[in-house]
Computed example of a mutant assay.
Amino acid sequence: MLIQIPEVLSPEALDRCRAVLTGADWADGRITAGTQSARVKQNLQLPELCEASLAIRQIVLDALNRNALFFSAALPKRIFPPLFNRYEGVYNAFGNHIDNAVRTCAATGARIRTDLSATLFLSNPDDYDGGELVIEDTYGEHAVKLPAGDMVLYPGSSLHRVEPVTRGARLASFFWIESMVRETERRRLLFEMDMAILQLRETQGDSPPAISLTGCYHNLLRMWADVQ
């Protein structure tokens, strides 16, 4: 399930992020790649614990904590500290790969299961050519290139790639989420139910059917959620 989450970052937050990224010291993106993905990864990345990463990371995490749609879609238990990459010049693409199932945080050593992958776009689509995030699922390929500040969530098990950037620079934040609900289909069901409840409450208020469905949602979440 691919879910677009619009306006995760405000224009002001985007400006702050870009100001830091402008003067940042970029490194070879293969510093966080697994054995297979290192063969096809050709981009730049901020070191995980550098000053620029730490400054922008908090902006992204604060925005995620305020975003109700993100919470509904991901049901996050743990979020891997957001990372930042750049595609430009000869460092312009990332071939087909699947993300590692478990990531280890450099700062704490904590391990996070990558149930969901996320890409938060920081560059305006008109500022670069190419750079589409292409995600494959049972329905084929989906090319994603979103406005700056928007984010896409997709299963961490997905085969995906970033097409070559042929003009300009593509800046983005990427990270992974360990969900309280591990199974993709259960998360999908809960998300669709939550969205239906919101629509029902908008049209009918807190009617008996809306209250009943809300109870069903929370009882399913109570059955399936792992919060330890």
Rank of each mutant, 00 (worst) to 15 (best):
M1D: 15
Q4R: 15
I5Q: 05
P6F: 00
E7M: 06
V8T: 01
L14G: 06
R18L: 02
A19L: 01
G23Y: 02
R30N: 08
R30W: 06
I31Y: 10
A33D: 04
P47W: 04
L49S: 13
L54V: 06
A55M: 11
I56N: 00
R57N: 11
N65Q: 13
A68M: 05
A68L: 11
F70M: 06
R78C: 10
L83I: 07
N85D: 13
E88N: 11
G89T: 07
N100M: 06
V102E: 02
T104E: 08
C105R: 09
A106E: 09
R113F: 13
L116N: 02
L120Q: 00
L122M: 01
G131T: 09
G140N: 12
G140P: 14
V144Q: 09
L146W: 10
Y154H: 11
L159T: 09
V162N: 05
E163T: 15
A169S: 12
L171N: 01
S173G: 15
F175A: 08
F175N: 10
F175G: 11
R182N: 15
E183I: 09
R188Q: 11
L189Q: 11
L190C: 10
E192V: 08
A196F: 05
L198I: 14
E202W: 08
T203V: 11
P208Y: 05
G215A: 08
G215H: 14
C216G: 06
L220S: 01
A225T: 02
A225V: 04
Q228M: 04
